[in-house]
Design a protein around this nucleic acid. Structure first.
Length: 576
RNA sequence: GCGCCCGUAGCUCAGUUGGAUAGAGCAUCGGUUUCCUAAACCGGAGGUCGCAGGUUCAAUUCCUGCCGGGCGCGCCA
């Protein structure tokens, strides 16, 4: 949807005698652009007035047409059956949208809607002592996209990496370490060695179920401050962070705040005390829990039998900390849908504690990453490393560029490494973001390494072609053009797609849904490509005025792609 | 068993708060390059929108019940 839907609504409102917002919600898009760019359905009015819809449509169309002065952005209002349809005047749209895109540059499509409100976004949050697998991709890229989208929409996002560096898993590592730990190997092999230990632990567990208790005991020991346990924990932590940071560097992701769960160690006691003081705790089989008063939510365990803490306990402490630190407008948790119950419980406990802001805590779930060919199990060491996926994508991009330069008799780009990196990573990231986040995704090398069709490289390619036209034109791009030359239906549809970027951003921010932006970008690229491929539609021609006008349109297209891809965390190469 | 999520073309998915003949990409078939980058474009074929009811002038969209898949349901995170 674009600004012109509102223009249309404003025109209709006095005629139908309803507020603009209500009219706006009744405006849609006709199935075919030949019918018009916007449509207003008259069925609800027909019911109120007990008159046939086509008759009302005809009356409204006539009244609206009479009230238009002719020089506005809309034209040709007419009734089509029960609908009032209208066209956007391409010339006016071009004059209003294109100079805006040129002037605002990286700011085009952005909004001030957020008013600087703080929004902590908890994402990625890998567990230490487990490698960064492909299944971590989802939280990482969705969260990163949301951070950038929020910033573009005028919010003040805080990207938080809530590293899983506390809990029984460390008890497990400490337990196995006593049996076969080797500091030399940890130093040289890093996280791969930790994975080996983790797998070994689970293997031994089959014959020695008592190891589970040993692990719990070791975690308790860690939590009570045992020096050797602390020292080893610190080693594991460093080894893992080194790997994580390599992957974040590949993806171009930086966090505003990286705090392990361990950070909240001292903040849990106050929460537990407050729960006790408010008489919300209950002992059950020597463990401590909170009664939630809701059958569907069950009960929430906050302390184990041995007195050590749980995930939920730390998340409660973290929520309090984030509120005190940021006074957030909302706090997002980009965590898999499997943990819906955990977050529902957490919100409920916050509510019971009287945190009036508990409604602002929002779980932003996403579907699972699964695998077709076989069941993947980290416990058995069966894992696809995200780093490997990214590297293979970059390698394939490099081969594709090299093949392209041979076929097209062009030189390799100077910055081949940068190009290949952006394309490969862009393909992987866009592939994850293009679908609605709640859907499960099946990992498939062919999909991830596909560069054709609705993919990141397709969008980058569209932008790259425009960039090279800019070079070829050889003169500055100007907004002083004859907009009348951009009046064709193809141009107008492209303009409306470009103008729709801001709405897609706001809708995406509202729903925490990066795919809305991804969709809009595809529409922009497709509409441009359709024009571009036409033999009778060359940007650069002997007609300088026409060339300048079309180049301005192309430049706005590229700016929209650049900005939108930037929000998704995808960089665009200059050449492909 | 209970709760949450999902079910649209052979495959992967859109479908903007119910509205006009349900749209893309991949795959498939056919076409486009004396070159503004074919990682592209155009066209063909392909769908009882899981099933059955209900609400409505109108349901892929809302409600109920089934069926199918996924996830979760106290001492992992």
């Amino acid at each position: 949807m674009t600004r012109y839907a509102r223009t249309f609504a404003a025109l209709l409102a006095p005629v139908v005698g309803k507020p603009v917002e209500e009219v706006l919600s009744g405006i849609g898009k006709p199935p075919k652009p030949e019918l018009g760019h916007f449509a207003y359905a008259c069925f609800p009015l027909a019911k109120e007035r007990k008159t046939a819809p086509p008759k009302i449509a005809a009356e409204i169309a006539e009244a609206v047409a009479a009230s238009m002065d002719g020089g506005g952005a809309l034209r040709d209002v007419k009734a089509v059956g029960p609908y009032v349809n209208v066209f956007v005047d391409g010339r006016t749209a071009a004059r209003e949208i294109l100079p805006d895109a040129l002037t605002r540059g990286a700011d085009f499509g952005c909004s001030q809607q957020g008013g600087g409100a703080a929004v902590p976004v908890d994402f990625s949050s890998p567990n230490i002592a487990k490698p960064f697998g492909i299944h971590h991709l989802r939280s990482t890229v969705i969260g990163h996209a949301l951070v950038r989208m929020l910033a573009a929409a005028g919010y003040r996002p805080i990207g938080i990496n809530h590293i899983g560096d506390w809990g029984t898993q460390f008890g497990q590592l400490l337990a196995i370490w006593e049996m076969e730990g080797d500091e030399e190997r940890l130093r040289s092999e890093g996280i791969h060695y930790l994975l080996e230990l983790y797998v070994d632990f689970n293997k031994r567990l089959e014959d020695q179920p008592e190891l589970r208790d040993v692990a719990r005991e070791r975690f308790r020991r860690l939590e009570s401050g045992d020096a050797e346990c602390r020292r080893l924990w610190s080693l594991f932590r460093e080894a893992s962070l080194a790997e994580f940071n390599r992957v974040y560097a590949l993806l171009g992701i930086a966090f505003d705040d990286t705090k392990g769960e361990s950070f909240y160690e001292d903040l849990m006691a106050p929460v537990l005390e407050e729960l006790a003081a408010k008489d919300l705790l209950r002992e059950s089989e020597d463990a401590t829990l909170v009664e939630l008063g809701d059958e569907d939510l069950g009960t929430a365990l906050v302390k184990k039998r041995d007195g050590s803490t749980l995930y939920l306990t730390r998340d409660l402490a973290a929520a309090d900390y984030r509120w005190r630190t940021y006074h957030f407008d909302r706090a997002l948790y980009v965590v898999g849908g499997a943990q819906s119950l955990h977050f529902a419980q957490m919100k409920r406990v916050l509510e019971l504690l009287g945190r009036e802001w508990h409604e602002r805590v929002i779980h932003t779930p996403f579907g699972m990453m699964r695998f077709t060919d076989r069941k993947m199990s980290t416990r058995k060491g069966d894992i696809i490393y995200l780093e490997e996926v990214l590297e293979r994508a970059v390698e394939l991009a490099r081969e594709t560029i090299e093949a392209g330069t041979r076929d097209k008799d062009r030189g390799l780009p100077d910055d081949l490494d940068t190009c290949a990196h952006r394309i490969g990573v862009g393909a992987v990231v866009f592939n994850d973001l293009k679908n609605r986040r709640v859907r499960d995704v099946t990992f498939n090398w062919d999909d991830v390494l596909n560069f054709e069709g609705e993919t990141g490289p397709y969008l980058q390619y569209t932008a790259a072609r425009i960039a090279s036209m800019g070079d070829k034109l050889g003169r500055p791009i100007t907004a002083q053009v004859d907009f009348a030359t951009l009046d064709g239906p193809g141009e107008t549809q492209l303009l409306l797609a470009i103008d729709g970027l801001e709405a897609a951003l706001l809708r995406g921010v509202e729903a925490s849904e990066p795919s809305y932006v991804a969709d809009q970008l595809l529409e922009i690229a497709q509409r441009f490509s359709t024009l571009y491929a036409r033999r009778d539609w060359k940007v650069i021609s002997a007609d300088d005025g026409l060339s300048d006008a079309r180049m301005l349109l192309a430049t706005a297209t590229r700016q929209a792609l650049l900005n939108g891809l930037g929000w998704l965390g995808i960089e665009v190469p200059d050449r492909m």
